[in-house]
Structure formats: C-alpha cells, structure tokens
Design a protein around this nucleic acid. Structure first.
Lengths: 231, 231
DNA sequence: CAGGAATAAATTTGATCATATTCTGGGCGC
DNA sequence: GCGCCCAGAATATGATCAAATTTATTCCTG
C-alpha cells in the first residue's frame, strides 16, 4: 500500500510525498480508534484544522471518509460527532465479528508463512508487555495491529475492509471499557490462536478467535449496560 | 443550481436545502450502482464537475466517500476508477451476502408491519413489469430498492450499512451481467420471500433470500469468468 | 414587579468557490 | 534511448457566503 514509487534509490522524504488528506485521515483515524475522542463527543472542522495544523479541504475530505466508514456520524444538521453505541449496536457488532473474524482467521491459517507467524507472535509479545506495564494506549494499538494483521493474511481484501470498518465503530467504546476495567481485566485468546495457526488447525483457529472476539465484545456490552444504569 | 430558496417568511422549499456534496454523492452513487460507469472505467474530478455542473470541492468530497465505501478505487497514482472484480472478489461478496442477507431478512420478517409488506410487494410488482418491459435500468433500480427495503426493515443500522456497501461493490458488474443476459435471464425468489414474510416464517424467509442472493451472485461470477476467457 | 417564553441579534461553524501550487505522464529534441 | 519540458489534472489554500446554535432582549402574563 506504499505508493512511494520513486526511481531514486534513496528516499529522503517518503512521508511528505503523501497527500495531506491522507495523513490527516490517518491521524484522525488513530484519534478515533484509540479513544482520544470519546463517544458522543462533537468534532468541528475548524477545531481539527487548528489541532492538526492543516487547511480545511484535507480535513473535510478525511472527515467524509471517516463518516462513510461509520467511524463518525453526522447528526441531524451538519454537525459531526463520535457515535454513541447502544446495546443493540454492540449486538450487531458481536454478530458480525463472530462470523467474520473466524472466517478470516481460517483463511489466514491456511496462508500464513512461518515468517508471518513469527511477526504475529512478536506483536502478541509486545502486547503482553504493554498489559504488564499498564500501558492502555499501547494495548489498544497492539491488539488492533494483531487482529488487523490476521485480516491482511487472509488475502480477502473486501472482507478485510469490512472487518476493519467494524473496528472503527467500536474503537471509542473499547477505550471506555479499558478506562473502567484497566488492562489487567482484558485477557485474550491470542495464545490459543497462535498455537492453532502454527499447527495449521483451521477449526481450532476459528474457535480461538471466536472466543477472543466474544469475550472482548461482551465486555464492551456489559460496560455499556452499566454506564446506562449509572445514568 | 437548486439555490431557489429565499429567506422569506414562508417555508416552501424543504428539500432543496440539501448540501451540494450530498446531492452529488447520490448522483454519483446512482451512476455507479446502476452501471452508467463501467468497471475499469477511469473518472476524473474535472470531468465530473462538468458532467454534474458542480464545483470541485463537493465532487471531491463525494468521491472520497465513494472510495471509502469501495464503490470506487484510487489506483496508485492519483487516478480514480471503477473497480474491476475478479473471481476471488465475487467469492468474497457471495460469502458475505450469503450470511448477511438471510440474517437481515429474518429480522425484517419479525418486524415488518402489514403496511411494510404491502409496500414491498408493490416494489416487486413494479420490478416484474420492468422485466417484462425489458427495462434494464428499471430492473436494477427496483431490485436494489427491494433488497434495500428489507435491510431497512431489519432495524439493524450497522449491518444494513455493511450490506448496502456490498451492493456498491458489485453494482457495476451486475449491470454488465444484465447487458449480456438480458432481463429475462434473471429470475428471482422474491415471491417465495414475500410469502414467507407474510407467514412470519423466519426460516423460509432466510432460505428464500439465500437462494436469491446465490443465484444472482453466481450469475455475476460466471459472467465474469466468461469475460476473462473471452479476453 | 418577577418569571418565562418567544423573538431577534450575534457568533460560531459548515459549505462552496476561485485560484494558486504541485504532481503525473507524455511528447519533443538531442 | 534518455532526459527535459510542457500540458493537464489533482491537491491545497483562504476568502466568502449561508445556516444553526447560542445569547440577549423584550414583551406578556400572573
């Protein structure tokens, strides 16, 4: 996906060659995905222009993109905000991921090279360290990268796109859960998944990822129900 | 061009107050969905500005949105084109719809009012007339509206969004199929589905929609394989 | 006279455009 | 064939216009 096709051997400035709307998009996406923007929070175009130090055209384009992906929503009249999920929405996300993630994990199990598995294991080890460190942001990023890597390995671009889009929808709420529970309370099934992938056991891989997804998403659902009750 | 609304006391123009980027998006979306743009065809911003009689900022925003939804793709350099599907992509779409559409149909069956069912039946009757008339564009639009209505009735906004996004991806190719086969060669299972929904038979509704989806998508896959062979 | 609701000014924010700048790709001369 | 240059297209800016929310005022009622 790197479009830094220079014919010169050394690339001194690979990042500045990216269009501004692309870099803005990535920054904004990270802001949503890792919870720097809270659910329900309103975002303004001009506020983002100042915050990210950019003109308004690139910001507007990035916003349209995020809105189309469901990461942001425009409420009634032209205002943009981070979506607030209710129990029904989380139920939809659970249903979707419970079907999508196992399928992609099966495909990834069939296709992953030893090198891929090593890289995946390395991410998971970093993830464990982030948990022990109590580094919530690191946990969120590495957990995302772990699942994202599996999507990429599945070699199914459309389904991977869909799965990736789902992450953008519950990212902000996941951050809220971590804020309540702490990183300790979020065990995962990554070890089971990695073992199954190494053994090329499709069935076990699908079951491991299903358990991981359900566990994490149910925690989001319950945390959300608790928030409503406390309201 | 629709700026006919004055700020005079009487509010006579409720609809024309839509932003330009929104109307541009809808026009462009229809262009993609109903095959006025062929797969592989390149689109230029300035060309669209002239074609739709709009400034370039709204066009750019609409394009970003369509690209994010997978309806268009930007190839390495900054050119934008209608995606060309291969067999693998169609396989992914079949897999996704085979799971998503039955689920949404089940939910719609549980929730649809008699009024909803009458409206759905009316759409299907119009669809039949379009087929008899040999009106391909009408067929494509009404078939889409039929399925789209079911998504809406399911009361699952996120899953409906995902399903809707899938349509944007195979819309152009569906048009190509119709161009080869003609409207006669595309029977559907809508009658079975409507009967099942009237009887509130979830199981039968899911099965009917599954058959409809598989039948239609397999035709796309085969037509596409034939195109490759002829290439 | 006080409280409140409706209305009108003001400010904030979004939408659009015209234009300047940068980048890509192709043609021409060497 | 290789490199330079030019046309065309995309990107990005800031100004300007319009809409919506907020704030302030006023008038009516109890």
């Amino acid at each position: 996906m790197q479009k830094t096709a220079r014919k010169t051997g050394s690339e001194a400035a690979p990042v500045s060659r990216l269009p501004a709307h692309e870099t803005i998009y990535r920054q904004l996406r990270a802001l949503v995905l890792f919870g720097d923007l809270a659910p329900g929070q309103a975002v303004t175009i001009q506020g983002l222009c100042e915050r990210l130090g950019a003109g308004m055209t690139p910001v507007r384009e990035a916003l349209r993109r995020l809105i189309a992906e469901g990461a942001l929503e425009l409420q009634g009249n032209r205002r943009v905000s981070v979506p607030l999920l209710d129990a029904g929405h989380v139920g939809e996300l659970i249903f979707a991921r419970q079907w999508l993630d196992p399928h992609l994990a099966e495909r990834a199990t069939a296709r992953a090279s030893m090198e891929d598995l090593r890289a995946l294991t390395a991410i998971d080890n970093d993830l464990d360290r982030a948990i022990l460190r109590g580094d919530m942001r690191g946990y969120l990023e590495l957990n995302y990268r772990f699942h994202r890597r599996i999507y990429e390995l599945a070699d199914a671009p459309i389904l991977a796109d869909v799965a990736d889009g789902l992450w953008l929808r519950f990212g902000p709420s996941l951050r809220v859960v971590c804020g309540r529970v702490g990183t300790q309370g979020l065990p995962d099934k990554h070890k089971d998944l990695l073992a199954a992938m190494r053994a090329r056991d499709h069935q076990a891989a699908a079951e491991a990822i299903r358990a991981d997804v359900v566990q994490g998403m149910e925690q989001v659902r319950q945390s959300l129900a608790r928030a409503v009750r406390a309201d």
